[in-house]
Design a protein around this nucleic acid. Sequence first.
DNA 1: CTGAAAGCGCTAACAA
DNA 2: TTGTTAGCGCTTTCAG
Lengths: 349, 349
Amino acid sequence: MSDHEQSPESRARRVDVARLAGVSPATVSFVLNRTSGQTISDETRQRVLGAVAELGYRPNRAAQGLRQGRSATIGFVSHDVDFGEFSAAAIKGAHEACISQGNLLLLVNTGGSNRQAEHLITDLLDRQADALIFAAVGTRSVLLPDAARRVPTILLNCFAPHDPVPAIVPDEERGGREGTQALLDLGHRDIAYLTGKPAQWATKARLRGFRAALRGAGLNPREHTVLPGNYHADSGYDLVRTLLRRGPLPTAIMCGNDRMAVGALLGLMEAGIRVPEDVSVMGYDDQFQLAAEVRPALSTVRLPYELMGRLAAEQLAGGRPGAPAGRTLVHCPPVMRGSTAAARRSRGA
Amino acid sequence: MSDHEQSPESRARRVDVARLAGVSPATVSFVLNRTSGQTISDETRQRVLGAVAELGYRPNRAAQGLRQGRSATIGFVSHDVDFGEFSAAAIKGAHEACISQGNLLLLVNTGGSNRQAEHLITDLLDRQADALIFAAVGTRSVLLPDAARRVPTILLNCFAPHDPVPAIVPDEERGGREGTQALLDLGHRDIAYLTGKPAQWATKARLRGFRAALRGAGLNPREHTVLPGNYHADSGYDLVRTLLRRGPLPTAIMCGNDRMAVGALLGLMEAGIRVPEDVSVMGYDDQFQLAAEVRPALSTVRLPYELMGRLAAEQLAGGRPGAPAGRTLVHCPPVMRGSTAAARRSRGA
DNA sequence: CTGAAAGCGCTAACAA
DNA sequence: TTGTTAGCGCTTTCAG
């Protein structure tokens, strides 16, 4: 408790510190910023640091920003209607990376509108955002807003075909392949695939991976049922009923995502079919508070959203020096839990 | 395309606009800010506006902020380990309200640590955040970080017992009561409650509501099974199996949240019990992409996270003039879907 | 009706 | 080794 303490209302300014330490304001800056080319005596430094501590002084970043042309702030643009699981995880990852760089996240959500995106990015730039993370929810191709060109930008879970902007994208094809392979390794030779929205990039990539894995095992993809869904849980339920109606079940079912897998689980249980004893079920996403919690716990392919967010922020900050300027593919590893088991029927279907 | 256009690299400054319009920099500000007490001729105004448009001029908000002591930025502090559904929805609501006020959200996540909270809020204040939204994920009592006292703050989904800070909190007791009432209205007289984490505020409040509704219907709460869970889907599953083991099922099951309800659904289906024909199931939260999508679709109690986020931002901005300074209770309305139906057994259990 | 000028709090080149 | 000074881009009081 010192007489010098400011009222809690007003922040101490640099000049207050200088006065208390008996030095000039510039010296305070030199000490605090470790300005290179400046040598400060140890004694002065201690006096300054003491005054800083006593006054609880913190530099005003708006002033610093004005002077230096940077704000220590990264804009995170969520370009989609939805704003759920993915955004939350990606933001968390990006946030953590930012914090350890001394940056903060300025967050906007475009609702999927390009006009709004343009507008909000302008807002971000007005506030001196140093860089942008432009994220979509469903992996897809996007139109990079013009405004984003004025500042370092990285795409997260999307890509701009005609722009040389770096992008972080999950390796969905490999994910589909490895997920399928995990099933093949369990001895499954008859696998149905209940897909997500057929038009989506991720859906197609995963399906390619599925087929590649089958072919790699000497199987003919055409002999495996592929039914189009839409990533909603109820489509998993509906498609399982379709499967049931059509005749004998496959020994394993791959689903477009975990929500569909939960729907499938519900449909199977309702029909008295046991998972994984009678049929194995596999999801995709490893959705937070869902995949690992349902019973049986879902085997799935992990979409590492948080990691992707972190990568984006790190790459922006130049934290990864030799980072590829182009598309970074992130691995989606299979995670095996209780909803899959060795195939019931013997090999050779 | 005019000769006056700046290179895309450098933003036009106010002085550029002034020069192009043939006026002084101050006049530009007067026009743009509609400064009261200043009268600008219509002709001058047009010239200025024309120059602004031509140069694509936008005021530098860091400079404005430095001058005015405000940044048009609200800090959103998510004070919890988790960062999922709730945060996403609340942030979305807060974001929308902020945008329509001309503000942007500066987002931080404390990971639940008070030390980190203090630290991050300081970071926020260094960047001149004008106000704070301090949000928890599970409704609960929090320790308001000292730093937050320096700026208008509103609590979201939490409360600080010993601080006179306004708070937006869901009316969990009423939610529990009305959810139970909906079941009573369907003729159910034997209702089991699979609760969330017993120690949590929300759990207790919902349970109070449950009991109040039963008493209101002339029933004795003690005759109804209450089993403690933990808000995870698997606890719903496990508790249903406990229920099954104990003897005849109740006609309806209330769950701590939707995830538990999904677990319960899975457990019931597995046991060959039909929902809602044999037993009705009710969730809580109306979780995005879950409650409405599972089959049968979950009847539940809607926790309006997005609305709460919006309310917080509006209240901060003074958008709601006569707003209560204290705790704002937000209504959680029951939403009836396919997982509930009229009680199988006749009244009088 | 319009312009000049004084800062907001800070950094950094230059002087001492 | 430390202090002086000129801005960063803007708002706003006060004169004209």
